[in-house]
Amino acid sequence: MKILLSGGGTGGHIYPALALAKRIAEIEPTTEFLYVGTERGLESTIVPKASIPFRSVEIQGLRRSLSLDNLKTVYLMMTSVAKSKKIIKEFQPDVVIGTGGYVCAPVLYAASRLGIPTIIHEQNSVAGVTNKFLARFVSKICLCFEDARNDFAAYDDKVIYTGNPRAQEVAQIKEMASLTEYGLREDLPTVLVFGGSRGAEKINQSMVDAAALFAEKDYQALLVTGSLHYDKVRKQIESLMPKADHVKVVPYVDQMPALFKAVDVVACRSGATTLTELTALGIPSILIPSPYVTNDHQLKNAESLANHNAAVIILEKELSGESLFQHMDALLCNQEKRNVMAQKAKELGVPDASDRMWRVIQSVL
C-alpha cells in the first residue's frame, strides 16, 4: 500500500500525521509513505527526521482583507495543484490524507481530481478554512471534536469521529520524566505551566507575579518559558525568590508527554494536540486559550473539556498572577478534585484513534 500524507505549518498538523504513519507501519509494515508539505513550514525539518520521504509545494493562505497578496495566493494555488498532480502521478498513492494547513488544499484537491480516495482530519473543535474548502471534494472527513461536525453539516454522510492519532501514540508512552532533573521534589504536588513551544508572554508574566506565593506552600511549579523569554523570566523569578525552591524555570522541554505523566496539574494554552495529549493521559488542566487564533478555536477546544468538568478555563483578559495562582491552589490543595478531573479527562481521550483512522482508510479503498 502507498499512502501520501500532507499537513503543515504547525506541529498540531504534523504530529497527528506522523503518529498515524507510525501506527500504520506497525499494522502493515510494507506500506510506503510520502509526505507533501512546504519548505517554509516545520514539516520540512520534522518529517525527514521521522525517515519519511518529503516533497514540497509552494502555497500561502488567503488574507481576510482585500490585498494584492491574494492574487499571488490564487497563482500559487494553480501552480501547486499542477505540481501536486505531478507528484501524485509519480508516487501513485492508494489514498491521500490531509491533516490541516494551507498545503493540504492543492494536494488533496489534486488527488480528488485524479480520482484517488482522500481523507481530511480536523483536529480542532472549529474547522479550518482549508478543510472547509476541501470538504466537498474529499471521500471522508475525520473529527477530533464532535463540535466540529456542525461545520460540515452539508457533508454529514462523510463525517466520522475518530479522535486524534497522537492520542494513541501518547497513551502508549512508557517513559515518565523525573522531577529531580528539574530541581524539583518527587513527593510534592506539581503544576506544569507553559504557553506553547515558543512560550506566551502573558502566561510567563502571570507566573512571575504568582511565584512568591508558592514560598510557603506544600506544592511546586515548573514554568516552561520558551527560549526567547527564558533569561528575562528566570532573572525576574530569582530576584523575587533567591532560592526559588518551589518554582523552577526551563526554556524548553523535548518530551512533554513524559513530563505530563510526572505532574499533577497542567496550565497551558488549548491547542488541539496539547488537549489530545492531556486527555490521553488523564491530566487535570487549567486552560488559557490563545485569543490570537482563527475563529477563537482555542476557546472552543477548551470548552469541550471544561463542559465535561475535565478542565477549568481562564480567559486571557482575566489572566493575572492572582487568578492563575488561585486556580492552581484550588487544584493542588485538593487531591479528590484532581482525581475527578483526571477521570473526566481520561473519558474524553480516544486511545484507539489511529486504529479508527485505519478503518476509515480501509473503507475508502
Rank of each mutant, 00 (worst) to 15 (best):
M1H: 07
I3G: 05
L4Q: 02
S6R: 04
G9R: 06
H13L: 02
L18P: 06
K22E: 15
R23N: 15
R23K: 13
E26R: 13
T30D: 12
F33Q: 03
F33T: 08
G37N: 06
R40W: 10
G41L: 07
G41N: 01
L42G: 15
L42R: 12
V47L: 01
V47T: 11
P48Y: 08
A50L: 02
S51P: 02
F54V: 06
V57W: 03
G61F: 03
L66N: 14
L71V: 15
M77R: 13
V81F: 11
S84N: 04
K86Q: 04
Q92Y: 12
Q92P: 01
V96L: 07
G98T: 10
T99G: 09
G101I: 08
A105H: 04
L108C: 03
A110L: 01
G115P: 10
I120P: 09
H121G: 06
S125G: 11
F133Q: 05
A148V: 11
N150I: 12
F152M: 05
A153Y: 15
D156W: 09
D157G: 09
D157I: 13
K158L: 06
T162C: 04
P165K: 04
R166M: 14
R166E: 15
A167P: 00
Q168Y: 12
V170F: 04
A171R: 14
Q172Y: 12
E175M: 05
L179T: 01
Y182E: 01
L184G: 10
E186N: 12
G195W: 00
G195I: 01
S197V: 05
S197H: 00
A210K: 08
A215I: 04
Y219S: 04
L223S: 07
Y230P: 00
K232C: 02
V233R: 09
Q236Y: 14
I237G: 08
E238M: 12
S239D: 14
M241I: 08
D245H: 13
V250H: 01
M256H: 01
A262E: 01
V263S: 14
A267I: 04
C268R: 00
L275S: 14
I288F: 01
I288T: 02
P289E: 10
P289W: 00
Y292N: 07
V293Q: 00
T294A: 11
N295L: 13
D296L: 10
D296C: 14
H297P: 11
Q298V: 00
L299V: 02
K300L: 07
E303L: 14
S304C: 13
N307G: 15
N307C: 08
I313T: 08
K317P: 10
G321S: 12
L324D: 02
Q326Y: 10
Q326F: 05
L331I: 03
E336D: 13
V340K: 13
G349W: 01
S354E: 08
D355F: 09
S363F: 07
